[in-house]
Amino acid sequence: MSQEETVGELGQSVGYVLKQAQAALHSAMDVVLRPLELSVAQYACLELLGRSPGLSNSELARGAFVTRQSMNLVLRGLQDRGLLTRPEQAPHGRALPTQLTSTGQEKLHAASVAVRAVERQMFSPLSAEEQRRLCDDLAVCVAATPAAKSKSQ
């Protein structure tokens, strides 16, 4: 009879340390985004729209790792502040393609610079090659998860 393996020492668990890193990054991003009056989810939305204008609520929610309902609130708040526009009615289907305004682009630039500074600090103990390797290794791990595999099929 085989004995099932447990997580063991948390400090040696890749998943636990990865969650600590994610929490540390999120907290540090929150600190630098707060003076810009942005949450991490709002910043993620702006960043996604800056790279791919016209994304739908569902696409933005997936990209920002929030629910569609949460993204709807994020979008409404950003729209009320004049940072993005959405048409009143969908040009086709139900999706409302979203675009950054010039004010939204300026806010995105300031936020992106602030977040990049956080990333530089967090990853400063690693060389550029080690950072690339970490990113590549994590991408391989993500692709190996059952959720990622089911999305690619």
Rank of each mutant, 00 (worst) to 15 (best):
H26R: 14
Q153W: 07
L78H: 01
A23I: 03
S150T: 15
G82I: 00
K19I: 06
Q153A: 12
D137C: 03
L126F: 11
R94N: 07
L38F: 05
A61E: 06
C135Q: 15
A44H: 02
Q121V: 12
A28Q: 15
L10S: 07
S56G: 10
L49M: 10
S127Q: 09
F123K: 03
Q42I: 04
V40I: 01
K149Q: 15
C135R: 15
A90H: 11
E119N: 13
A21H: 12
T145Q: 13
N57Q: 11
A64E: 00
L84H: 01
Q22S: 10
E130D: 12
L108R: 07
V140H: 12
S70Y: 06
A61V: 09
V32T: 06
Q3Y: 10
Q69S: 10
L75P: 00
Q22H: 10
L96N: 06
L126M: 14
K19V: 09
L100M: 07
N72I: 00
L60W: 04
R51C: 03
D30Y: 01
G93Y: 08
A24D: 04
S2T: 13
K149P: 02
V40Q: 03
Q22T: 08
V7H: 09
E37K: 14
Q99L: 14
L55E: 07
A147W: 06
N57Y: 03
P125S: 09
A144H: 08
E88A: 11
C45H: 07
A148H: 13
S150V: 15
P87K: 05
E88G: 13
A139V: 00
E106R: 12
R62H: 06
A144I: 01
P53V: 12
D80H: 05
S102V: 13
F123N: 01
G50I: 04
D136I: 01
T101S: 08
S13Y: 05
K107V: 08
E37V: 13
P87L: 01
G93Q: 08
M1W: 09
A95G: 07
R132V: 02
T103H: 13
A114Q: 08
Q99P: 00
S58C: 02
K107P: 00
S56A: 13
L38D: 10
Q89E: 15
S39Q: 04
L75C: 01
A23S: 11
V115C: 05
A114R: 05
S112C: 01
S70D: 11
V113E: 14
L18W: 02
F65C: 09
S70K: 14
L100V: 09
Q20I: 11
P87Q: 02
Q69G: 10
A64R: 04
V32R: 04
E5C: 08
L96F: 06
V118Q: 01
R120G: 05
T103W: 08
G77N: 10
S27Y: 03
V140N: 06
Q20K: 11
M1I: 10
